[in-house]
Amino acid sequence: MHELGKRLGRVLRAGDIVILTGPLGAGKTTLTRGIGEGLGVRGPVQSPTFVIARTHPSLIGGAPLVHVDAYRLADAAELDDLDIDVDRSVVVAEWGAGFDLERESWLEIVIARPTGAGDAVDGPAAESTDDSVDWSEAPVEPRHITLLGFGERWSEGVL
């Protein structure tokens, strides 16, 4: 997930909105960490669950990353209420599926993972931002990623 995020981060630019959809533990925050690395933003990129949105400024003169937890937002209008400068930022919103974005283009990434995979990491521990945990030792279960580009921006593909 992290490597895919880095690749995406290298093609994203100011004004892009990325909607991440997937169950708890699917890797949405890990993907966003990779996007942040690809964009060259200040980290660490952590889950925005308790603050709704975190802004990570660019370290290389590019667009900042705004990482949003849309779980507690009722609709895209509440996203507007956060007063995010969408046109000058790359916005990544976790749990934003179904939002009517009223934008010309956006990217939706749907992450599916198997359930009942035995010893695989699952549940809240998989979404942990605790850097003291060595996740490289945790078993990795496969993910199925669907990249859906909407609008002219993505008419020639995503990656």
Rank of each mutant, 00 (worst) to 15 (best):
V86D: 01
D83K: 00
A63C: 04
F50K: 06
I84E: 00
Y71V: 15
F50P: 09
V86P: 01
A63E: 05
V66D: 00
R88P: 01
W95N: 04
V41F: 02
V51W: 03
I52F: 06
D87L: 13
L79V: 15
Y71L: 15
V68A: 13
E78F: 03
Q46E: 13
I52G: 02
D83I: 00
G61K: 08
L82S: 01
G61N: 13
S47G: 09
D87C: 04
V92W: 12
P64Y: 05
Q46N: 14
R72Y: 08
S58T: 08
G62H: 06
R88V: 01
D81H: 09
D80W: 07
L65V: 05
L39F: 03
T49L: 06
R54H: 15
L39R: 04
V92D: 04
V91D: 07
S47Q: 08
G40Y: 10
D83S: 02
S58N: 06
P44S: 05
E94R: 03
Y71G: 14
L39W: 04
L59N: 05
A77L: 08
F50D: 11
D87T: 07
A77M: 07
G43S: 11
V90N: 01
L65R: 02
Y71S: 12
R72C: 14
Y71K: 14
D75L: 09
R88Q: 09
D75H: 12
E78C: 01
H67G: 00
P48N: 06
S58G: 07
V68P: 13
V66A: 00
S89V: 06
R54N: 15
G61H: 07
G40D: 09
Q46R: 12
A93G: 02
A93F: 03
S89C: 05
A76S: 15
D80S: 06
D85Y: 02
H56R: 11
F50A: 12
V86W: 03
D83T: 00
S47D: 13
A70Y: 10
R72Q: 07
L82D: 00
A70P: 09
I60V: 15
F50M: 11
A63T: 03
I52Q: 00
A77Y: 15
D80N: 09
V41A: 01
V68E: 11
A77G: 05
Q46V: 15
S47E: 14
R42V: 14
S89Y: 02
R42T: 11
F50Q: 10
V68K: 04
A70R: 07
V92Y: 10
L59Y: 03
A74Q: 13
I84W: 00
A77K: 12
A74Y: 04
A63Y: 05
I84G: 00
Y71M: 15
L59T: 13
H56M: 10
E78K: 01
I60T: 14
D85A: 13
D80L: 08
T55C: 01
G43N: 11
T49N: 04
H67W: 05
G43Y: 06
S58R: 05
T55H: 00
V91E: 05
L82K: 02
V51T: 15
